[in-house]
Structures are given as structure tokens and as C-alpha cells.
Design a protein around this nucleic acid. Structure first.
Length: 586
RNA sequence: GCGCCGGUGGUCUAGUGGUAUGACAAGAGCCUUCCAAGCUCUCGACCCGGGUUCAAUUCCCGGCCGGCGCACCA
């Protein structure tokens, strides 16, 4: 960013209809972008390739959850508490700092301040006379400002039912886990994908599409049995990528390692095989949508960056600097092993069961102490406490069956002791057959930003060159993601060329291609127009077409042309797009 | 949120206390047998609000938006 090429890319994006800042008529609004005709088409294509790779090819299901969800969902997920920042402003220099960080960074002995109440933070600041890290002014007495990154709304009239715009698409999957597991016939592993919008009320959106308040995510939640499920690493073992391990980031001159997924696992660079598997899948996908893999890497989170539930986490990063400049790495996606964190949270906070039943290969017989209290005795004897006494007896039997060996057994309920004759407890040791157990699946989560991927693909596709002494700008996008696949032009709009070209354009559309028809001005101008939006092929109808039924097809990157029979045109374009045919050998 | 700089047609831009320059793009036409050619015509702009002034796009203040730096990015 910041550099010349990025500015020209943003200018092209606006001029040609890839993306523009929203609500310009009303002064613009920071952090919101509208995809224009080219951008919307490209985004659709990018999402289609993601769907193909992460859902269809992997055999996973796709869902589409609401963007607004009720407050309890985010209480459970931790976003309500963990997603807000506590800011404190310095009265002297005006700098805002993370209050929880200031508290942590000193001799207070507090390591994890994020969960503390703002009032407590204020007390700690006053107590230890903490100062502004910028100018050294005391911060005692300054109010702590809460800033939650979630957009809040109300569901229905009144404010009794608060809701939030989801800050990530993932929760929409987690909360439906019980039903989704049913759809998967309770068989692990299974994966659920979602492509959708997510919202974060960023303090300071920046860098065009790269930091926005509304964006699209493509997420996969893979639910596994951690004890038995393993990925098929051979499917992506040969995929090569650049890896930037945490250790290398800590020391000076630490290097990026280029190797294959399989070798990265063998050498211990990537600890978790599932993470390794998805790094491989993702590397293939990023390459497929046109990223320059020399300007791409996987960076491992350093220990301090890791979320507390995550053992190992990697980010996909793309370099969006100008060629020859210092790299400017932006985060494109995250790959996290989330263990049972999310499902356990929702299991605890909701009424539903977020586990799956795992059947043993062979049923096991266990001796299980049970009670069957005689309520007709307990009731009259203990009155209102009878129910609690019965519960206490049940847990006692589970924990310490020995207690039932005497004549009487004593339990404590609400501070009072109750003694029950053993014969009234119905205590028995039963042989029970267990055919399996309930387990909470673990979650492997590849989470990718669509807008950032799209921006990076544009950045990496942006080219400037010269054709016959004229400057040319073009986007060398893969045909699969280019907004338009074929441009169709009559060499001139007369002598029936236009009519013939229209027929050909219609035929190509019927064959399923995204086609642009253009008969304005000189032919060269039309080629350049399509170059700027990344159209890979242009077909021109000329006088020979009327004579012998052939057209020229032009390759965007080389500007070379070949003659092709009209009846072979659709098949030829199809083969070119699929990569089964190259233009050079056409 | 703080600091610095900026905001003129779709895009890039000149300039000004008296309503604005040029280029590109776009539209119409002529010309044109494959790479932004030429000619004619047309369309189209001073971010918003307040202040100073006879008069503000211009000066001042505030806001919004953008770039950069700081902070933030669970």
C-alpha cells in the first residue's frame, strides 16, 4: 500500500467498477465498500472457487446463517466480554491506550486484565499510579472507555431483546451444531462451511478494502474426534509453500522456509496434521485465484498471539507492496485448532447437547453404583429438602460408593446434615452395558477473508506494459475469477459484422460464459478496455468470418491472436479456461 | 481516537475573494479491414455546515471523507 501502484489499482478499481467507497453522495462512510459490476462478478467467482475447493471437493456441507443473532449467543462465545477494548485517554498528550495492557505491563502482578471490570482497572491505575506510556503523565482518575467492536441492534420493538451483527460467521455454525450433527448422521468427522458477511465496528478502517467494517468471510468448521480422526495428508503433501515459523520471527534474520506440506510436517514445522492439511488446501486455492505465491506465506502465531484455547495457529499472508519495495504483509486468513472450546461453551450456556455419541467397537460392561431412594420415606422425613437429599445420595453413590456400606448414610445439603438408613436409599451396584460415550468434537477452523483475497488477487494481477509503443494496463487474472471471460467485437459495425458478432456473443452466453459485447470506437480501444478488467480472451468478427466462418481470438497477456472456426469457439474457450489447452499451442 | 497533510466533472488535474483550466474517459456523428489514431459536436465538478465579506470553491472554525504516522486489528 501507500505506493504508487496501489493508488493506481484503487483508481482503476473505482473507474472500472471493481469497488468503490459506499454512500459517496452522502459524504461517504468509512469502512464500507460497494462492489461494482466487475467486482461483484469477480467476488462471485472467487467465492465459487472457494466453495468448490473447501466444500464440494472436500464433501462438506454449506449453510447460510443469519447475520443478526441474539445476545446470549455472544455471551456464550465470549465476544461480549472479550471483544471489547478498554481504552484510557491521556489527559496530557491525548493518546489513547489499551487500559488492560497498561495494567498488565507493570508491577501490578496482573497477567490477564481483559476480564477485569473497568472500575477495577481504574482502581488499579490509581493504586499503582500508572502513567501514560507515551508521555509519562499519570492516568489516575481518567475514565475507562469501553469500546465493543460488535454492532449492536435490537430484535423486535423495544430494547428488551438485544442482538448483535455477527463479528465472524463461525458462531452461526456452532450454535446449530446439534442439528448439523444430525444432518451428518452423527458421524465424525464432518465439515460445515459458510460464506457470508461479518461486521466489526473498527476504530479506524484503513487501506481501502483491507480493513473494513463489513466484509465477507469464508469459513470451514471441521468437527473431528481428536482421538481417531486424521487427515489424508497425501492429498496435499506435495503442495509447496513458504512457511514463517514462530521461532524464525523471534530471532534476527529468521528465515522463511519454502518446502512442501509433507516435509513441513515431518520436520515439525507444523505441529498439527489437520492444520497442515488445510494450509495445503488453502495454498492451492490462493494460487488458483491468482496470487503470486512468491508473495505469499504462512506465518505461525507467536506464543503471545495465540488465543488461550488454541495450541497452534497459522495465518495466510499476502504481500501487497509495490515490486521492489519492502514487503507489506496483510493477513488473508487464519488456521486454528480450536479444540472443544466453542462447542463446550455453547453446551454450557444453552439447553442443547453439543456432543456426539461415540459408539465403542465393543460394548463394555461396568459395575455402576446406583440409588433409587424411597421417596415415601424421604418426603415425610425431610420435607422440602427431600429432593435435594435424593440428588446428594445419587452423587455420593457415584463418587464414594463405600459410604453405603454401613447402616446409615449421611449427606450434606445446604449446610445441614441428613442421615438416611441405607435400606431406604435403594443403593445397589448394577452391571451396566455401555455401548459408547458422548464426546465433544474438536474443531479445526480455516477462516478466510474474501475481500482481502480479492484485493490481493487484483494487486498481484496488476500489470503495466507496452504494446506497439503504447502504454497498456491489464489485470492478469485467472480466467476462472475474471469478471468477464470473453469479449466479442465486430471489427466494424457494418456490412453485417455486427449482426454476426451478436450471434456469436449469444451463442457463447448460451454455452455459459460471461460475455461482453462491444462495438464502440476503434478495435484497439476495445481490447484495452477488456485488458483493464482482466478479460482473458477477446473474439473479433471480421470480413473473413463472413467468408470462411472463422474468428480471431486474442490472448490478453500476450496480445497474440489465432484464427478459430466459429463452431469450435465455445469448446476452445472452455479448454483454455480449464487449462486443458494453452494459447501458445493453439 | 490523536497528530500531520489533503478533498475541483466518472478519473487525473490547473487555478481563483467576483461560479473554474486541461487531459483522459463517456455519448452522437464522420472516418477506419485488428491493438487507447484523426476530425466535429455533446455531457459533466469546486465534500458538508457555520463564520467573515457586498460577494467564499478560495480565508477562518467545525464536521465528514481520504492518505500517512501513533494506537487498535478479539
Amino acid at each position: 500500500m501507500t505506493q504508487v501502484e496501489a493508488e493506481r489499482l484503487v483508481e482503476l478499481a473505482k473507474r472500472r467498477g471493481f469497488f468503490l467507497q459506499s454512500a459517496g453522495a452522502y459524504g461517504g462512510v468509512s469502512g464500507f465498500y460497494t462492489f461494482g459490476p466487475q467486482g461483484a462478478a469477480m467476488k462471485r467467482n472467487v467465492e465459487a472457487t472457494w466453495r468448490d475447493r473447501f466444500a464440494i471437493q472436500e464433501g462438506h456441507m454449506e449453510v447460510d446463517a443469519p447475520t443478526v443473532l441474539p445476545e446470549p449467543v455472544f455471551e456464550a462465545s465470549g465476544h461480549l466480554d472479550g471483544f471489547d477494548d478498554m481504552l484510557v485517554e491521556c489527559p496530557e498528550c491525548g493518546e489513547s491506550h489499551r487500559a488492560d495492557h497498561i495494567v498488565e505491563d507493570t508491577e501490578t502482578g496482573i497477567e490477564e486484565a481483559e476480564s477485569l471490570a473497568p472500575e477495577r482497572i481504574e482502581e488499579v491505575i490509581a493504586e499503582y499510579e500508572l502513567v501514560c506510556p507515551t508521555c509519562g503523565t499519570g492516568l489516575a482518575g481518567q475514565a475507562i472507555e469501553q469500546f465493543n467492536l460488535m454492532f449492536e441492534t435490537t430484535i423486535g420493538p423495544g430494547s428488551s431483546s438485544p442482538g448483535y451483527l455477527r463479528p465472524e460467521t463461525a458462531q452461526g455454525i456452532f450454535i446449530e451444531f446439534p442439528q448439523l450433527a444430525e444432518y451428518a448422521r452423527n458421524q465424525l468427522p464432518f465439515g460445515v462451511t459458510q460464506i457470508g458477511r461479518a461486521y466489526r465496528n473498527e476504530i479506524s478502517p484503513r487501506k481501502s478494502l483491507l480493513r473494513v467494517r463489513e466484509f465477507s468471510q469464508a469459513e470451514l468448521e471441521l468437527f473431528i474426534d481428536p482421538e481417531v480422526d486424521e487427515p489424508d495428508l497425501s492429498a496435499v503433501g506435495d503442495v509447496s509453500a513458504r512457511f514463517y515459523p514462530a521461532k524464525a520471527q523471534d530471532c534476527e534474520g529468521g528465515g522463511v522456509i519454502e518446502t512442501t506440506i509433507q516435509k513441513a510436517v515431518d520436520n515439525g514445522i507444523i505441529a498439527d496434521p489437520w492444520i497442515a492439511y488445510y494450509l495445503g488446501v488453502a495454498a492451492e486455492w490462493y494460487q488458483r485465484i491468482g496470487l503470486d505465491m512468491d508473495r505469499f506465506r504462512f506465518r505461525q502465531h507467536r506464543p503471545g498471539e495465540l488465543a488461550h484455547y488454541s495450541e497452534d495457529c497459522w495465518d495466510a499472508e499476502g504481500d501487497v507492496s509495490d515490486p521492489g519495495k519492502e514487503p507489506d504483509w496483510i493477513e488473508l486468513g487464519g488456521f486454528a485448532y480450536r479444540a472443544d472450546y466453542d462447542l463446550s461453551k455453547h453446551d454450557a450456556h444453552s439447553e442443547e447437547d453439543f456432543t456426539v455419541f461415540k459408539q465403542y467397537d465393543d460394548p463394555v460392561t461396568v459395575e455402576k453404583p446406583t440409588v433409587d431412594p424411597d421417596m415415601s420415606y424421604l418426603g415425610p422425613e425431610f420435607g422440602g429438602a427431600a429432593g435435594d437429599v435424593a440428588d446428594a445420595l445419587e452423587s455420593l453413590a457415584e463418587d464414594t460408593p463405600d459410604a453405603f456400606e454401613g447402616e446409615d448414610v449421611t449427606v450434606e445439603v445446604g449446610g445441614d446434615e441428613y442421615t438416611v438408613p441405607v435400606e431406604k436409599t435403594g443403593f445397589a451396584v448394577e452391571e451396566m452395558t455401555e455401548s459408547g460415550e458422548h464426546i465433544t468434537p474438536h474443531v479445526v477452523e480455516p477462516s478466510l477473508g474474501i475481500d482481502r483475497a480479492l484485493y490481493t488477487a487484483l494487486d498481484h494481477a496488476y500489470r503495466e506494459d507496452e504494446v506497439d509503443g503504447e502504454e497498456r494496463t491489464y489485470l492478469s487474472l485467472p480466467p476462472e475469477v475474471a469478471p468477464t471471460t470473453v469479449g466479442v467485437f465486430p471489427l466494424m459495425d457494418k456490412d453485417g459484422l455486427g449482426e454476426r458478432a451478436h450471434e456469436i456473443a449469444d451463442d457463447l452466453r448460451e454455452a455459459g460464459f460471461a460475455v461482453t459485447y462491444d462495438d464502440s470506437g476503434a478495435i484497439g480501444r476495445r481490447y484495452r478496455r477488456q485488458d483493464e478488467v482482466g478479460t482473458p480472451y477477446c473474439v473479433t468478427v471480421d470480413y473473413d468470418t463472413l467468408e470462411d466462418g472463422t474468428v480471431t481470438i486474442r490472448d490478453r497477456d500476450s496480445t497474440d491472436q489465432r484464427r478459430v472456426a466459429v463452431e469450435d469457439l465455445a469448446a476452445t474457450v472452455e479448454a483454455l479456461v480449464a487449462g486443458e489447452e494453452t494459447f501458445a499451442t493453439l
